[in-house]
Computed example of a mutant assay.
Amino acid sequence: MAATSSRMLRLLSLLQSRRHWSGDELARRLAVSVRTLRRDVDRLRELGYPVEAQRGVDGGYALAPGAALPPLVLDDDEAVALAVGLQAAAAVEVAGMAETSVRALAKVVQVMPARLRRRVDALRAMTVPGEWGAQATGGGVDPAVLTTVALACRDGERITFAYTAADGARTDRSVEPFRLVSLGRRWYLVGYDLDRGDWRSFRLDRLVGPQGTGARFAPRRLPAPDAATFVRDRIVDLPKGIAVEAVVQAPADVVRNRIGRWATVEDDGPRRCRVLVDADNLDWPATALAMTGAEFTVLSPPELRDHLREMGRRCTAAAGPAN
């Protein structure tokens, strides 16, 4: 049976607590057999933690010099998921959440094994976010595809892959990758298609088997201000937007400071403002309006009023009866 994450964290913690452990003592502390301990150690090595083993009477286990890192046991998929989640949270301008997420992401990446750190660093550096409310979650995309393409973008390496178009036609492509874009709850690759002699955007959930060719290329000039703009201007399958309009009983500057990244806020009197939002669902505009901390009136769409009533019902039920 594979080692559980909690036991491996405990093993890492013990290895960091002193210079050397005998195998028998470590096994007793973990309440496992010596054979299971060996498997746990092998798993840590697979994840990139340098655990040294010594044979003989004085044999045992120790972390290699300079490897006393805070414990973090992540496989490739978990590392990518964590990086995507924290990167999305870092874009949120809410009561210090962005700063906190950036700090957390920096700390987490710092203590990853070198192999995972290289992949996650490439994903962070090569991803261009679209806009809040339309962040890609990673669903439907193989994490190995994400990191392979991100590394190719960073290293300027041509890649090949199979691609399935919207009509179901499958073709082999050779591309100079430029950037990844998270937009409309999907991931896109922006790159120069060598077979077609033009820039293209590719949905990553339709991309199969990306492989580096080893061939490097000089960067070309993208015919757009940035990769996110390039994707938005050319794709036709983004989720349809919902136009939300509300009047908030608070000064525009106050509301703009709270939700300005998510909405257009216009003056509508000395102590009130008009909020305009284009969303692909009703959840986050409802949350944004509630976060203004002021009374507000929904002008459109009518469905948002029903949505707010249901949210209010759930919140009231969660709060329980008043004391």
Results as ranks from 00 to 15, higher is better:
residue 185 R to A: 12
residue 198 D to G: 10
residue 196 R to L: 15
residue 142 D to S: 09
residue 156 G to F: 12
residue 131 E to H: 08
residue 170 R to E: 07
residue 151 L to I: 14
residue 177 P to F: 10
residue 132 W to G: 13
residue 201 S to K: 03
residue 146 L to C: 02
residue 141 V to Y: 04
residue 158 R to A: 14
residue 168 G to D: 08
residue 167 D to A: 09
residue 183 L to S: 02
residue 151 L to P: 04
residue 188 Y to R: 07
residue 193 D to E: 10
residue 154 R to V: 10
residue 161 F to H: 08
residue 149 V to M: 08
residue 136 A to C: 00
residue 167 D to H: 08
residue 188 Y to P: 02
residue 135 Q to P: 14
residue 190 V to N: 00
residue 134 A to Y: 04
residue 193 D to A: 09
residue 155 D to G: 10
residue 190 V to W: 00
residue 186 R to D: 06
residue 155 D to H: 15
residue 178 F to E: 14
residue 196 R to I: 04
residue 200 R to M: 09
residue 133 G to L: 00
residue 181 V to E: 00
residue 201 S to L: 11
residue 139 G to Y: 12
residue 130 G to K: 04
residue 191 G to V: 03
residue 133 G to E: 02
residue 178 F to V: 05
residue 165 A to K: 12
residue 155 D to K: 13
residue 152 A to E: 05
residue 154 R to G: 13
residue 187 W to R: 03
residue 167 D to Y: 01
residue 142 D to Y: 06
residue 191 G to C: 02
residue 148 T to W: 11
residue 185 R to M: 13
residue 152 A to Q: 06
residue 187 W to L: 01
residue 150 A to I: 12
residue 197 G to M: 00
residue 187 W to E: 04
residue 150 A to T: 09
residue 153 C to D: 06
residue 146 L to P: 06
residue 144 A to S: 15
residue 160 T to Q: 14
residue 137 T to F: 08
residue 129 P to D: 00
residue 186 R to C: 10
residue 204 L to Y: 14
residue 198 D to Y: 00
residue 133 G to I: 07
residue 167 D to R: 10
residue 131 E to A: 11
residue 203 R to A: 10
residue 175 V to E: 07
residue 159 I to L: 07
residue 155 D to L: 13
residue 146 L to H: 07
residue 138 G to W: 04
residue 189 L to V: 08
residue 136 A to K: 03
residue 200 R to I: 08
residue 156 G to E: 09
residue 160 T to R: 11
residue 193 D to I: 01
residue 171 T to W: 13
residue 180 L to S: 01
residue 144 A to I: 09
residue 191 G to S: 07
residue 130 G to Q: 07
residue 169 A to P: 01
